[in-house]
Design a protein around this nucleic acid. Sequence first.
DNA 1: GGCTGGCACTCTGCATCGAAGAGTGCCAGA
DNA 2: TCTGGCACTCTTCGATGCAGAGTGCCAGCC
Lengths: 400, 400
Amino acid sequence: MFDEPVSDPHATGGEPVIDSPSSPPSAPSSGSARAARTPGRRPGRTPATRAAAPVDPVAAVLPLDDRKLAVLRAIVQDYVGTEEPVGSKALVERHNLGVSPATVRNDMATLEEDGYIQQPHTSAGRIPTDKGYRLFVDRLAEIKPMSAPERRAIRHFLDGAVDLDDVVARTVRLLAQLTRQVAVVQYPSLSRSSVRHVELVMLAPTKVLLVLITNTGRVEQRMVDCPAPIGESTLAELRARLNARAGGRRFPEVPALVEDLPLSFEPAERPIVSTVLSTFFESLVEQSEERIMLAGTANLTRFGHDFPLTIQPVLEALEEQVVLLRLLGETNDGGMTVRIGRENDYEGLNSTSVVSVGYGSGDESVAKLGVIGPTRMDYPSTMGAVRAVARYVGQILAES
Amino acid sequence: MFDEPVSDPHATGGEPVIDSPSSPPSAPSSGSARAARTPGRRPGRTPATRAAAPVDPVAAVLPLDDRKLAVLRAIVQDYVGTEEPVGSKALVERHNLGVSPATVRNDMATLEEDGYIQQPHTSAGRIPTDKGYRLFVDRLAEIKPMSAPERRAIRHFLDGAVDLDDVVARTVRLLAQLTRQVAVVQYPSLSRSSVRHVELVMLAPTKVLLVLITNTGRVEQRMVDCPAPIGESTLAELRARLNARAGGRRFPEVPALVEDLPLSFEPAERPIVSTVLSTFFESLVEQSEERIMLAGTANLTRFGHDFPLTIQPVLEALEEQVVLLRLLGETNDGGMTVRIGRENDYEGLNSTSVVSVGYGSGDESVAKLGVIGPTRMDYPSTMGAVRAVARYVGQILAES
DNA sequence: GGCTGGCACTCTGCATCGAAGAGTGCCAGA
DNA sequence: TCTGGCACTCTTCGATGCAGAGTGCCAGCC
């Protein structure tokens, strides 16, 4: 059965939101500039260019005809469902492809030569390789939209949130539940937010608490140790000027806007003001720039048979905020990003796939979210869930 | 080798800080009122009372002599080390107990009858039961103090923290590393902290951001939707009065101290003031009362052979803040609490042990921390690490 | 009464073996 | 280009057998 167009998988349903990682923003290779692209390593793997310049010797072999693609898709679907290598006979039975097992076997041999599938052992069925999944995601899969009840449930669940922490917490849990995988949600990034209010609270003569509130509702605080006692009036003035200049501005602009502030104070007070300001920038911008929330680690137990070996490095990766941040950081700004297996830079995640996307209150993204699962995941559904959740979080943020 | 006193394991080294869960606060059963007690289910299991009233038919059998206790201890130690059932021959070889394997076998038979050890299969070695671990922890084990370099490392690591979040974050990671288990740290509880400062920030005419700073450096914020626009001057006045009355007070006292505040405002403003105040109490006290941080989940992979079955429910438990909070909540205020296997109320943790203790800036605890590991854990070392970390965090908090 | 050596017994763990089944690759023919 | 057939490979599973570890019990000794 070949019920979806292969040449442009996005023609029928959802918008084309798939971006492969590290695909060059230029050089649209197929009809639509926003259509799926193959990763940089295998350039020119699309109908439009495949005949033109056979850069890669493997790629040169490659007039993968429709049936072979259908076979690959069937293999991916079956393997994702059963977790077992799929053989030619079973494939023909389950997908009535209209040809005999022998023919499918020939196709499989081709697909294996080209590196899309592989055999765990001689005379076992085939399983998709990372490259196979890549092709599946890029050209064969269609993002599966959420059903109406699912959408309602998402909406309802997120609507109950009382503050930003709660929004993020609910979002991760929701995402983990929907996808039955590990979910990761980044807090709205400071660098993409704007300043709503800056508050300075004196706790002791030389101790000031700096509280920053962003337009996304995020609140950050930091203790400042002043070199000398600071007067309440100075503090009030600094607060007023800081808010006047920075209020409403995007974060990256702020330093330039307030750097001359110390000059407007008495010389004696300038060092103090400078200290407060530098803490403001350094600590808030650099240190706690990014926060992340995680849920669904229990889903890791459904990973596979070779359990402890796979799960340990993944758990370790999940403990490292840095790794997660970099992971999400690689999300393409435009659309959904899928990184499959070894496409992930971090070694511990070499047998996982990461589906991530930006979300935001307006039309641009303020942070990323995503899920981490086995390469052997149900990509269409996962991508659908990730996309849907990202949209609703964006809406919620825009409302509050 | 029988190098530590059995009758009172606390005579030589560390203070008696072990408390069994659910042990009645009254009825000290041995010499020291703070000495280890056995859980309620098995009353009267101590030298002082064992001959008096044989309540329990099993307990009646029980003049466990010193050698049997030594055998039990040896079994626990060996099993913890090897993860394999330990037999009589190996026991005699490794611990030169001064008797023959046959004798040890007889002792083992007794210990098994009494429920302290069990055989996985006929003619396999013995492994300790929960009850066996309980006895070990209560009477045979001594908390192993940290070495000087370890203490220095702890101190050094925690000293680098820049704010409360950082202190807590460093603490969990440290604890997880030291014990090689899952670590849990509760944020300093609001109900045991005092108010350092309350800040009210107007974000919109009817939106006020309430920021609360505690003496432990914890900062909580909450959005308040006012029923009517609130004036800047009213807000300033409310802020001043709130701080005047609540500043420095313990949290539980605060409601009573400020409940009449609305009356000191114009009648028109009272509803607004009331709204702010009620958010102050309800949200802060009830909802986000407790926060928890977690680390070391990757250590779960070292749990045991029967892997996925054990780890899944544990991971699920760890995802539930509520479960963790209740877990820590059961920590005895006085000293260290060890809950072994089925002593844990939560079913998913029935094959784990939880070692927890309170920590605080002064002499009383403001929150709890602990680790979760397999019942087959090295209790002396784990307890030593937990105790040491708790002390240092307390010191750090007291300083800042 | 408690400890010990000896002995028979049980059970696991491991390797070996063989049969069954699934799947492949290749070839000749339509 | 597809198909049916066939030989071959390799995994899986159960049965079998053997070695090793550990026990329980008993009779004898101190």
